[in-house]
Amino acid sequence: METNFEARFEEKLAKNDVIEPKDWMPENYRKHLIRQISQHAHSEVVGMLPEGNWITRAPSLRAKLVLLAKVQDEGGHGLYLYTAAESLGISRDELLDALHTGKAKYSSIFNYPTLTWADIGAIGWLVDGAAIMNQVMLQRTSYGPYARAMVRICKEESFHQRQGYEVMTKLAFGTPEQKEMAQDALNRWWFPTLMMFGPPDAESPNSDNAIKWRIKRESNDQLRQRFVNQTVSQAEYLGLTVPDKNLKWNEAKQGYDFSEPNWAEFKAVIHGNGPCNKDRLEARNKAHNEGEWVRAAAAAYAQKINESIAA
C-alpha cells in the first residue's frame, strides 16, 4: 500500500503537480519541509530585530514610517509561513519553542549587528535582494501552502528592496561622510549576504533531497551566482566598491568570478557564535514571555464567551 502511495507521490512531482496538506507524502519530505519552512518563518521574525533597532532613530518621519511598515511586513511573512508549516502537522507552540530554546535555526545574516543607518539601507538592498532571489524560486516549490505564502511574500518584498536601495542612494550621493558610511555597510554586509544562499553545492547536506522533491529548483551556487551578477552594477551606480579583490567579469561564463565567503565564519555563526546570536534569542524570549499575559487574557475571555453561548 505504502509503495502505491509513494508511486503516486513521485508521479505528481514528475508532472509538476503541487502537493497539498491532505495528500500522502513521505515522512522525510514532511520533515524536510517543516525544517525549511519553520527556519524561514523564524528568519522573518528574528529579522525584525536588527531593523527594529533603528525605528526610534530613523533620520526622518518618512524613513520611520517606511521602516515601521517594513518591519510589520516581516511579522506578517512570519505568520504566513508558520501556518504553512503547521499544515504539516506541527503546532505553533512547538515551532516557537524550538526557536526560543535555540533548537531551531534561522538565517545566519540576522546575527550581525546594525551599527549605522546605512545598515538599514544595506539590509533592504542586499539581504532582501538575496531573499527575493531565493523566494522567487520558491513560488514554484512543490508544497502548495509554502508556494502560496511565497507568492504573497514576493509581492511585498519588492518594496523592501527598493526602499533599501533608496537609502543607499541618498547616502552614496550625499556628503563624503555619508558615502563612507554606505561603503562601510557594503563592506560588512557583502559576504554575510552571499552566505545566505547556504553552503557550496558540494557541501550542502540537504540539497539533494530538496532538488529531488522539487522543494528547491535551483542550487545554492546557482542562486549565489545570479545574485552577484545582478548586484554588481547596482553597486557601481552608487559609486561603491564591492569588497572583493577577485571580483571580475568572466566573458566565457557570462557571469562574475568572485571569492567564496568565509565558510568557517558561516559555520560558527550558525552554531551560535555570531556577534548577536545571544542578543537575538534573549530579545525573542523576552518578547514572548512579556506577551504571555495577553495570550492568557485572550484565552480566558474566549472561554468566558464560549461558556455563555453554551449556557
Binding site: 505568520l79 504566513y80 501556518t83 507552540d93 502560496r148 504573497r152 485572550a298 484565552a299 474566549a302 464567551i305
Partner: peptide, 28 residues
C-alpha cells in the same frame, strides 16, 4: 496557546467572489 485556526477569504471589489487567501490563529 495561540487559539484555534481560522481560514480567511477576501473580496477584492464589491460584486466579486470571496477568495481564500490564507489562515491565522485567533481566540474569537
Amino acid at each position: 496557546s495561540q487559539g484555534p485556526l481560522w481560514e480567511v477569504f477576501v473580496q477584492k471589489k464589491a460584486g466579486q467572489p470571496f477568495v481564500h487567501c490564507g489562515n491565522l490563529h485567533a481566540f474569537d
